[in-house]
Computed example of a mutant assay.
Amino acid sequence: MAYFGKVFTLEKNENFDGFINSLGLPKEKAESYVKSKSSQKIEKDGDGYIITTTTSQGVTEMKFKPGVEFDQQITPEIVTKNVMTVEGDKFTQVQKADGKTITFIREFSADKLVVTITSNFWDGVAKRIYSKLNESEMAFFGKLYTHESNENFDDFVNSLNLPQEHATAYLNSKISQKIEKDGDEYVLTTNKPSGPSVMRFKSGVEFEEKITADVIGKNTITVDGNKVTQVQKLPDGKTITFAREYSADKLVVTITASFWNGTAKRIYVA
């Protein structure tokens, strides 16, 4: 099957907001689901399968054998009963909890995944349409990207309230970055004037990073195709998000923070 092991990224939705509204979720959570971008990958695992879903919240794996019931935890409080049947390129998941049933029909082709959603408590039909990630979009692995320019980066650095000497050094720093795949892990190497630093991580798994001699941050990085999003939590509760978007010849790092209303960018070229 040509789609096994391929990453399919969300392209568009049809009536997905109607389905989400039927779930009766709080407004904020419902809006986050509707706007969420995700990717899916299916792999063969002996006589079973693994579907891996990546979102901004992290990575989930669903392991199953056709026709065999399995549990899937949706929230900390809700565990659903599921049965997946396989008919050629069509994977039909029937999910049950509290008397409600939701059906997800995944239809794969070489370059597209269409997920059709119905339920026993809603009269509509929703679709999520994914496109296969082009192999050329993954050409950034192992490639060195060198800093070229900034947008509003000085305002972000000023928001950190660093000593003037440190702020000036941060603003004027010329660095390069490289990301590599190592099994189920990733290695992000940053070359700074003070020397190289290496971050080794698994997508969606929290890890610690020493930011200064006195400050250790907790980080979660999710990889969704060519988008690598790092959420960094500082000991004082503040968060900084670094959204890296790669292409074959450019890396754009978009920076936002919980304590600053602006958006900054650092642009790198290969």
Score class of each variant (00 low, 15 high):
Phe242Glu: 03
Lys218Asp: 04
Lys41Cys: 12
Tyr268Arg: 06
Gly262Ser: 02
Gln40Val: 10
Gln72Ile: 13
Gly88Gln: 05
Thr220Arg: 14
Leu25Arg: 04
Ile221Lys: 05
Lys81Trp: 12
Glu87Ile: 14
Lys178Ile: 01
Ala257Gln: 08
Gly24Tyr: 06
Ser36Gly: 04
Lys238Phe: 09
Gly58Glu: 01
Glu61Asn: 13
Val125Phe: 02
Asp236Val: 13
Val269Trp: 01
His166Ser: 15
His147Ile: 14
Ser36His: 00
Val114Phe: 01
Gly183Cys: 10
Glu107Cys: 10
Ala139Cys: 04
Gly237Ala: 08
Gly237Glu: 06
Lys127Glu: 04
Ser173Asn: 15
Gly217Ala: 15
Ile129Gln: 00
Val7Pro: 00
Lys174Ile: 09
Asp17Val: 02
Ala2Glu: 14
Asp89Trp: 09
His166Asp: 15
Gln57Cys: 01
Pro193Asp: 03
Phe108Val: 09
Lys238Asp: 13
Phe156His: 07
Phe207Leu: 08
Glu148Trp: 06
Pro66Ile: 11
Pro66Phe: 10
Lys65Ala: 11
Val59Pro: 01
Pro76Trp: 00
Gln232Trp: 10
Ala139Met: 00
Asp123Arg: 03
Asp71Gly: 14
Val125Thr: 14
Gln232Ser: 15
Leu133Val: 11
Asp236Lys: 13
Gln57His: 05
Phe242His: 08
Pro163Asn: 08
Val215Ser: 11
Glu209Pro: 00
Val114Leu: 04
Glu135Phe: 03
Lys250Ala: 09
Asp184Phe: 08
Ala169Ile: 10
Ile117Arg: 01
Gln73Arg: 11
Thr118Asn: 04
Glu135Gln: 10
Thr220Ile: 13
Ile78Ala: 08
Val125Gly: 01
Asn21Glu: 11
Gly183Val: 12
Asp71Gln: 15
Glu135Cys: 01
Pro26Trp: 01
Thr229Leu: 09
Lys6Ser: 12
Gly88Trp: 05
Ser56His: 09
Phe70Asn: 11
Leu251Thr: 05
Leu144Pro: 00
Asn261Ile: 04
Glu209Phe: 01
Thr256Phe: 06
Ser247Asn: 03
Gly48Met: 12
Glu69Gly: 13
Glu209Gly: 00
Asp47Pro: 11
Asp224Gln: 11
Asn172Lys: 15
Trp122Asn: 02
Gly58Pro: 02
Val223Cys: 06
Met62Tyr: 02
Val157Gly: 07
Ile50Ser: 07
Thr241Phe: 06
Ser203Pro: 07
Ala169Arg: 15
Arg128His: 00
Gln57Gly: 11
Asn261Ala: 09
Val215Gln: 09
Phe4Thr: 09
Glu14Ser: 05
Phe4Leu: 15
Glu148Ala: 13
Lys41Val: 12
Lys178Cys: 02
Ile105Gln: 10
Lys238Glu: 11
Asp98Pro: 07
Lys127Asp: 01
Met84Leu: 12
Asp47Gly: 13
Ile179Leu: 12
Glu185Thr: 15
Gly237Leu: 08
Val223Gln: 05
Phe141Thr: 04
Asn172Arg: 14
Thr60Glu: 08
Ala257Glu: 08
Glu77Tyr: 02
Gly99Trp: 05
Lys90Phe: 10
Ile179Val: 13
Lys227Thr: 13
Leu10Lys: 09
Lys218Ser: 09
Thr53Val: 07
Glu43Gly: 05
Ser119Glu: 02
Arg200Thr: 15
